[in-house]
Amino acid sequence: MRIAVTSASGKLGASIIKHLIKKIGNQNIVGIARTPEKANHLGVEIRQGDYNNRHDFDKALQGIDAVLLVSGMDDPQKRIQQHRNVIAAAEQNGVKKIVYTSIVGNDSETAFSPVVKSNRQTEKDVQEYGMQWVIGRNGIYIEPDLEYIENYVKEGGIRNCAGDGKCAYTSREELGYAYAQMLLDEGNNGQIYNLVGEAISQAELAALINQVYHTNLTYEAVSVEVYEKERKEALGDFLGTIIAGIYEGINIGANDVHSDFAKAAGRAHKTPLEMVQEIKAQE
């Protein structure tokens, strides 16, 4: 069985490939990347694949039995066609199974909803093409908060519009493990899984960071309007709006969902504390 993983040069794609190598060895895995040289370090065959170029995938998916489609990072409206380029090329090449990395979230109530909505459309597309399929809805990664710790310390704490809302965080390492299992285990076919851990509040997140990193962070809640204005000034209109929308989603409960991780992965999701400790140990 030959498995292809798209966006191999990205952190999630690389994690999935790493876990697949542990299970089936590197000779049966193909990484697909828009810039192949950025993925050469992964130790598997790398093929060219730009989501905007259907012809790339007509070639890249030759001889492939299952493909892991990592959701693109482009504008939500562009993503739908980009993903269809991969799905159609997979069907044309006789790929038997497609696994898609979607996201948890609300598709109508926040500034992040257009991103969620475009993912829901690709979920439908994946199901309609006649291949075996599995869909994972990823929770929010915990890594960006840990990468931002120095800034949090400078700013005196964590400040956003999530309020008391709870977020079921995950990590790229946990997702890599789950997606490798979803690709290989036929019992997962036809399932949509929430790939998340235990839900925690922002105050609980700050306490975890303090415990592991010996910081003294507190959490301050601000309004959506104030936070969106701050993020736009710091990151520009598009990204600022998206980030504010993510935290607004946490505030209204869009990220406090039940976890299907154990069903998908065959083991329990690591606790938030275990994830933070693991990431700290790898720094």
Rank of each mutant, 00 (worst) to 15 (best):
G63M: 11
I64T: 10
I64Q: 07
A66Y: 02
A66C: 02
A66L: 02
A66K: 11
V67D: 05
V67C: 04
V67S: 02
V67A: 08
L68F: 15
L68G: 06
L68C: 15
L68A: 11
L69A: 08
L69Q: 12
S71M: 01
S71N: 15
M73I: 07
M73R: 00
D74Q: 14
D75L: 07
P76C: 02
Q77F: 05
R79F: 00
I80P: 02
Q81H: 09
Q81D: 08
Q81S: 11
Q81M: 07
Q82E: 12
Q82W: 05
H83C: 04
R84W: 10
R84E: 12
N85I: 07
N85S: 05
N85F: 01
V86E: 01
V86P: 01
I87P: 09
A88V: 10
A89T: 06
A89K: 04
A90C: 11
N93T: 08
G94W: 01
K96W: 01
K96Q: 15
K96N: 12
K96G: 10
K97M: 06
K97F: 02
I98W: 00
Y100W: 07
Y100S: 06
T101H: 09
I103P: 04
I103M: 14
V104W: 09
G105A: 06
N106T: 09
D107K: 06
D107Y: 00
S108N: 13
S108T: 15
E109L: 14
A111R: 10
A111H: 13
F112V: 03
F112T: 00
F112K: 03
F112W: 10
P114V: 02
P114L: 01
P114M: 04
V115D: 03
V115Q: 04
V116G: 04
V116K: 09
V116M: 10
K117S: 13
N119E: 00
N119D: 11
R120V: 08
R120T: 07
Q121F: 01
Q121T: 15
Q121E: 14
T122L: 02
E123K: 10
E123M: 05
K124P: 00
D125S: 13
V126D: 03
V126R: 09
Q127L: 04
Q127K: 15
E128C: 07
Y129A: 15
G130F: 13
G130Q: 13
M131Q: 14
M131C: 11
M131D: 01
Q132P: 00
Q132E: 15
